[in-house]
Design a protein around this nucleic acid. Structure first.
Length: 326
DNA sequence: CCTGCCGCCTGCGCGC
DNA sequence: TGCGCGCAGGCGGCAG
């Protein structure tokens, strides 16, 4: 399940391998992989042939490849998507969906996706920020992310706190795993009402979200200079550092109480019954407040994690804000 | 306008 | 041994 750390790891690896290369041809092996592209697979392939990839950018869990035409290839990994660099001599993967070849004859870019929840599309004029994802909020690592705005927006919501963390229009990049981890660190139950949380409590939660994401990013980045850019979230290096997710019945690392698993949105939420007590009251019924306005923005992460030829220790390069922030 | 639920997919592991 | 079923889950669409 690629969330921000996994997608960012892929972005860094990809940028190093495809930026500045010209696409020779694109082969769509499975139409569902480009279902978001309404003009069809043929148009998708034709529009990309001859274009040069300028960079690789990310917004939340979306990636896009700005092209020299001012357009972009927009992609989402879904749950099982991978973007792999492979020499042409390597046999096709079982779930290869789209293949990009380059005019330099170097490694191919392959979109591989078992469950096909992910996909690619062609975004006209989307080099700066594809219109399709303009509604996605910035992520908490983004220098332009506003803590105060997030705190206010979350507290305006009439919902459960975990739903808010997963709401990509409020804060992007957080999925089920890191939401549970941040809530565990903040000692908040997932069903806590957003409008009943104090500003300091939301601020602390945000700090934990940031910590968890940055720690996982460091762990996921350990091998990103390999040719094979693995994106399968399940095989991440951060697994052993999880305190809550997937640990039903195991002792809470903080107090030793067996962790519980509860149904949540047709999936699961993991928490500690003692550290994260269930809220007494649920979501307040009705009462309306002001509107929230999303505003447009530019590309989020093309600078702070610039990839360099040899950067195993990405934690220290360019001293990203979150490395020293707490 | 806002919230919450559904459906999309496929592989894996479990129970019978 | 084989089969069916539950589960994993991000996100767009839509109902209420």
């Amino acid at each position: 399940m690629p969330e921000l750390p996994e997608v960012e790891t892929v972005r860094q690896g990809l940028a190093k391998w495809v930026a500045g290369r010209r696409i020779a041809s694109v082969e769509v092996r499975h139409p569902r992989a480009v279902r978001r592209h309404l003009l069809g697979a043929d148009h998708f392939a034709d529009a990309l042939a001859g274009r040069m990839v300028v960079d690789v950018c990310r917004r939340g869990k979306y990636l896009w490849l700005p092209l020299d035409s001012g357009d972009a290839v927009l992609g989402h990994l879904g749950m099982s998507g991978q973007l792999l660099m492979q020499p042409a001599t390597v046999a096709d993967e079982a779930h290869l969906r789209v293949r990009f070849t380059f005019d330099d004859g170097g490694p191919q870019l392959r979109f591989v996706d078992q469950r096909t929840f992910g996909g690619l599309s062609y975004s006209e004029g989307g080099a700066e920020l594809p219109a399709e994802i303009a509604h996605i909020a910035r992520d908490p690592m983004d220098p332009l992310f506003s803590d105060a705005e997030f705190v206010a927006a979350l507290r305006r919501k009439r919902t459960e706190v975990k739903r808010a963390l997963l709401d990509q229009t409020l804060i992007s990049g957080v999925g089920n795993i890191y939401a549970d981890e941040a809530l565990w660190r903040a000692q908040l139950h997932w069903a806590r009402a957003t409008d009943a949380l104090t500003k300091p409590a939301v601020g602390r939660l945000l700090g934990h979200v940031r910590d968890v994401l940055s720690e996982a990013l460091v762990a996921g980045g350990t091998s990103f200079d390999a040719l094979y850019v693995n994106v399968n979230g399940e095989s991440g290096y951060f697994d052993r550092s999880l305190n809550a997710y997937g640990r039903e019945g195991e002792p809470c690392p903080r107090c030793g109480t067996p962790m519980r698993r509860e149904p949540f949105m047709n999936r699961s939420s993991f928490s500690c019954p003692r550290c994260q007590p269930r809220p007494r009251r649920g979501i307040s019924p009705a009462s309306r407040s002001g509107v929230g306005r999303g505003r447009p923005g530019c590309s989020s992460t093309d600078d702070s994690l610039a990839s360099e030829p040899d950067n195993r220790d990405l934690t220290l390069r360019g001293s990203p804000r979150w490395a020293s922030d707490r």
